[in-house]
Nucleic acid binder design. Structure first.
Lengths: 241, 241
DNA sequence: GAGGCATTGTGATGGCGCGTAACTCTGGTT
DNA sequence: AACCAGAGTTACGCGCCATCACAATGCCTC
C-alpha cells in the first residue's frame, strides 16, 4: 500500500495524465482556451470521451492542472535567469532586466499559457492558496533586486502600504524572508522589496500581457522596447545601480 | 424607404436589441463571460431561443456589440475627465492623474466590461479596424498630456520607434493630429506623445487589469495607490509639471 | 382603407460538449 | 491462481448554438 506511488499502475496513470495535458496544450495553442474540449482531446488520443474522467474530474480540473504547470514553468524560467545573473555577477539594474526579460521571453514563447495564468477568472473568483503561492514563486526572485534599492519619494504611499502588509500578513513576511534572508536587518527593506515586486508585477502584466494578447499587432514598436522603457523608469525610481 | 431609420419598426428593433444587451450585461456581471448564453437571455426575457437570432447573428456578434459599447463607454469616461481637467485648468501632471483615475474608476466599477475589452482573444485574432479606432479614442486624450513633456533619456529607444511609426502609418498620424493639433509644429512632439500614450496604456493595463481581475484580493494595497505610483514614475520621466 | 409583405416569433431539429451511470474486461495485487 | 481495483466502453440526459420551415402580426404602399 505504501508503494502505490511507484506501482506500474501509478506510473501508467501519470503518463496518461501527462499525455492528456500535452494534447490539451496543443489544442490551446491552436484554438484558444474556449475551444479546449475534453471530448476532442479524447478523440485525438483515440479514446472515448468519458475515459478522460478517470484522470481529470472535470474540464475545470484539467485547466487547473494546466495553470499550475504554467506557473511552475514561468517560475523555472525566472529561476534560471537568476542563475544566469548570479554567474555574471550582475548588479541590481542588469539583474532586473535579465529576470524580466526571461519572464517576457517565456510569455511570448507560449502566449496561450501566459494568458492562462494572467487571464480573467470568473467574477466570484478567489485564487486558491496553492495558486497564490505559485505566483509568489514567480515574483520572489525580484524581491532581492529591490531590497537593494532605495524607493523614491514618489512611491512612498505604496511603500507605506507594503510596510503595513508585511507587518500584518505572516505568509507574506515568510515569502520575503525566503528570498531576502537579511531583510530583518533593516525594517525598511521588506517594504521596499514588496513595493518593487508589486510594481514590476504590474509593469510586466502591462507590457507582456498586451503583447501576449496580440494587441501590438500592426503597431510600430516591439514589446521588448516597451518593457525596457518601463523597467528603466522603475530602476531609476529605486536608484538601482 | 429613406425613413426606415426612424420607422416604428426600427425603433422597436433598436429597443429590443438594447434590452438584450442589458440582460446580457447582467448575466456577464453575475457569472462571467463564459456563462453568457443566448438561450438563457431569451428565457429571461420571456422569448424563445431562436428569436434572438433576429437581433444578433450569433453569440459572437452579441459579444462584439458589447465590446464596442464598452469601448465607447470607457472613451466617454475619459472624455468627461478631460472636460473636468479643462475646467480646473489642470497642468499636465494633474491632468494625467485625472484621466487615468477616470479610466480606472470606470474599470473598477464594471470589471466584467473592462475584462471584455482587455481580455484575451483567440490565438489568430486581429482586432478589426473598428475596434482599433475605438481603442484609440480611449487613449487619445492622453496624447496632448505627453506632447507637453520632454521624454527622458531612458526611453529614447521607445521614442525612436514611435517616431518611425508616426512617419510610416497615416492612420496613426491622423490620430495624433486629431488630439494634438499643433503637433506638426515640432516633429519631435508626435513621437513623445505616442511614447507617452503607449506607456500609459501599458501602465493602465498593468495595474487596472490586475485589479479588475481580482488579483489584488487579500493583498495589502489598493489599486489606486499602485496606479498613482506608476503614474508618478511616468510623469517624472516626461518631466511633467 | 385594404391588401401585400417584411418583420417578428415559434416549435422542431441537428450537432456538440459536459458529465453520470451501468457494464465489461484486463492485468496488477495478494 | 483468484480476486478486484482501475481503465475503458456504450448509453444517456442536459444545456447550448444555430438553422429551418412555418405562422402571425402589423407597417406600408397603393
Amino acid at each position: 500500500m505504501d508503494r502505490t506511488k511507484d506501482s506500474p499502475r501509478a506510473r501508467y496513470r501519470e503518463q496518461t495524465r501527462s499525455e492528456i495535458k500535452d494534447t490539451a496544450l496543443r489544442q490551446l495553442a491552436e484554438s484558444g482556451v474556449a475551444a479546449l474540449a475534453l471530448t476532442r482531446i479524447a478523440k485525438e488520443m483515440g479514446l472515448s470521451g468519458p475515459a478522460l474522467y478517470r484522470y481529470f474530474a472535470s474540464r475545470e480540473d484539467l485547466l487547473s492542472a494546466l495553470i499550475r504547470d504554467a506557473y511552475d514553468d514561468a517560475a523555472a524560467a525566472v529561476a534560471q535567469a537568476v542563475a544566469q545573473a548570479d554567474a555574471a555577477a550582475q548588479g541590481p539594474r542588469a539583474r532586473l532586466s535579465t529576470l524580466a526579460g526571461a519572464y517576457r521571453a517565456w510569455a511570448v514563447a507560449e502566449p496561450h499559457r501566459y494568458l492562462l495564468i494572467q487571464g480573467a477568472p470568473v467574477p466570484g473568483y478567489v485564487a486558491p492558496d496553492d495558486t497564490r503561492d505559485r505566483a509568489r514563486a514567480v515574483l520572489g526572485p525580484f524581491l532581492p533586486v529591490f531590497a537593494a534599492g532605495e524607493p523614491g519619494a514618489g512611491i512612498s504611499g505604496l511603500v507605506a502600504e507594503m510596510s503595513a502588509w508585511h507587518a500584518g500578513d505572516d505568509a507574506v513576511a515568510a515569502w520575503v524572508a525566503d528570498y531576502v534572508p537579511d531583510a530583518a536587518r533593516d525594517s525598511a527593506r521588506p517594504a521596499a522589496a514588496l513595493a518593487g515586486a508589486v510594481l514590476v508585477w504590474a509593469q510586466l502584466h502591462g507590457s507582456v500581457g498586451l503583447e501576449a494578447a496580440g494587441q501590438f499587432a500592426g503597431m510600430g514598436h516591439s514589446g521588448g522596447t516597451l518593457l525596457a522603457a518601463q523597467l528603466g523608469l522603475l530602476a531609476d525610481c529605486f536608484a538601482l545601480s
